[in-house]
Design a binder for these strands. Structure first.
Lengths: 359, 359
DNA sequence: TTGTAAGCGTTATCAT
DNA sequence: ATGATAACGCTTACAA
């Protein structure tokens, strides 16, 4: 009907009050006489005014109520990872007090039209991992005074991080295996770098991804010579493929496998079953993350439970604090070792097999 | 150093040009002499200006470059569903030409501070499902002229929908089973309503969730008397539990199971194995969705492949079209029947078993 | 190719 | 409790 959408001024005029009064009616930031209030509301209703335009409000306020979440990967891939999903949950919680929503951002925008760290109206940003490409945009964002927090990654300089005791935690699992008498242990690792194809890796292979490197270091603290098969991602099928590689040669089977994620561990277990091995009697398997692996029952993984939700929540709190003017703080979370039924002592049958030769 | 962040006017002044020229340098919307351009860029660099403030730009332009995605559930739960994940992928694609990003929004805001359909600076909104609670906010949003599209749900009135031929598709799978001689078929259904606990349902049970009801109707078109076990969600473990219920009584085992999702089907298969039944020799199983079920190999589900990515993309296109002033269009997608290795003819051994009695 | 000018719709501040 | 005023920072006709 009307040529343009009504504004708060229109409402004010109709109600016979000033724009500031009308504004206050909608924001509730100050007391308004009930009769006035009602008059404004009626005017709004009659004009079809549905409340302040968030765009204008955010300009004036200097806040958009939006927190950007930046992923390194394709969005679809990111959400297949249960740990990331849990983190998102925590993050949503953590920024809730801020009244903020989460804007999904991809690291690299091929088309160029997508919103980026630089073009989106963000109040703050949370990076999940931090590859090289991102560093550049990061400089821009911090220059603009937008708080940034990095989860599982290093953005250098004074950017607060939400970290995990990956190495120490993984060492715990390894020690657990050693205490059970395991000596011939293999590692099924997360990817070595972006775009990695699955395969065995040499002992001096440079590992670009922080999480992979740290967890591997923990395993090597206990088993320096463990063979390492690096998967192409944290998926059950990748673990299955890795497990097949591990168990292919009956004369060189490890008695235990340290998987760097629960999904990989689940795949390894499946490969073991396929090879006629029983878990944990013939081979012990440890995971990492402590997520619920759909369909893994009746197994209960021996794993490191990481506080994924808390990590997300902490990131949310961190940006909230920074927005409030408080100094940025890095936090390091700790994993809990949880013994399930996928690890056990080396048995006669397992030990009977010829030891595999490292390398 | 400076008391406030530099604006484009500051840059213009420093460069000795007008604000509009500086603006154009950053937006690239018009030709600028190279020397002028460089002068502006230098000025920006010297002032530490990192580009136009997106908030101001969005007010002026009337576009924020943000599309809201509204979920009924907890974010974490939503992303555990591979179909939703795929849809998000398609959606991200679909809104890309718009240059828009996706803002995650939850249906229900317990705290009350969360951004909502009404308070977020959205150009458009996509609802995944549409529960009652949402209807109200919807009115507000549409009143404001913000385009809205609903995927898998009914928002009433003239709100465009992205739908699926659930009933017809499910009927195809059922017919396939009948053609193979199956007569004693059970259905493992998606939840009957929000908050549903798994269990058998009576034939007159009212089913509140559209998808569940439609797919069930398709199955009943062929097998009116099929017993129905409704799971609490689309998860492998739910399918496993359902399968156990189905196979518990050896004297009342169905020769085929119609699962309303691939994840449920995967669980049913696992339950079958657990019960010592071979798939498809002893029991045939069909799924729905056509997603890759991590860890299901070597089975390949007989299923209905739904174009999940396309659905998302279509939703993106739809809002893009609406933003362009074109009329809203509802789209109905079609599933493809795909025969895998989880269905087959009724065998002597399966038929040998006593038929189960419906009800 | 560059400049001028007029908002975009709201809210914070300060008076009254 | 209400109102007047002045930004918030930018973009885009239109004019030069």
């Amino acid at each position: 009907m009307s040529s343009r959408r009504p504004t708060i001024s229109d409402v004010a005029r109709t109600a016979g009050v000033s724009p500031s009064t009308a504004s206050v009616v909608f924001s509730g930031k100050a007391a308004v006489a009930e009769t006035t209030r009602q008059r404004v509301l009626d005017a709004a209703a009659s004009l079809g005014y549905t409340g302040p335009d968030p765009r204008a409000a955010s300009l004036r306020r200097g806040r958009s109520g939006i927190v950007g979440v930046v992923f390194e990967e394709h969005l679809g891939a990111a959400f297949r990872d249960p740990v990331k999903t849990l983190m998102m949950d925590g993050l949503a919680d953590g920024v809730a007090p801020l009244g903020a929503g989460l804007l999904l951002l991809r690291d690299h925008s091929p088309g160029g039209t997508e919103p980026t760290l630089m073009t989106a109206p963000l109040d703050a940003a949370v990076l999940i991992g931090c590859s090289g490409m991102l560093r550049e945009s990061l400089a821009v964002v911090t220059a603009r005074g937008i708080p940034v927090v990095v989860i599982e990654g290093d953005a250098g300089e004074g950017i607060p991080r939400i970290a995990l005791d990956n190495r120490e935690a993984q060492r715990q699992a390894a020690s657990h295996l050693r205490a059970h008498g395991h000596a011939d242990v293999a590692v099924v690792a997360l990817p070595v770098r972006a775009g990695w194809e699955r395969g065995w890796i040499a002992h001096d292979e440079p590992i670009e991804i922080d999480v992979t490197r740290e967890r591997l270091a923990g395993a090597r603290d206990v088993f320096p010579h463990a063979r390492i098969f690096s998967a192409a991602g944290s998926f059950i099928d990748e673990g299955l493929a890795a497990g097949r590689a591990l168990f292919a040669d009956p004369s060189a089977r490890p008695t235990a496998v340290i998987a760097q994620s629960d999904l990989l561990a689940a795949g390894v277990i499946r490969a073991a079953e396929e090879a006629g091995l029983r878990v944990p009697d013939d081979v012990s398997v440890t995971g990492f993350d402590g997520v619920v692996v759909d369909g893994l029952a009746p197994y209960e993984l021996t794993t490191l439970v990481q506080p994924a939700v808390d990590k997300g929540r902490a990131a949310g709190h961190a940006v909230a604090a920074m927005l409030g003017g408080d100094p940025a703080v890095s936090i390091r979370f700790t994993c809990d070792f949880r013994e399930g039924n996928t690890t056990g002592p080396v048995t006669a049958r397992a030990a009977e097999q010829p030891m595999s030769v490292p390398r």
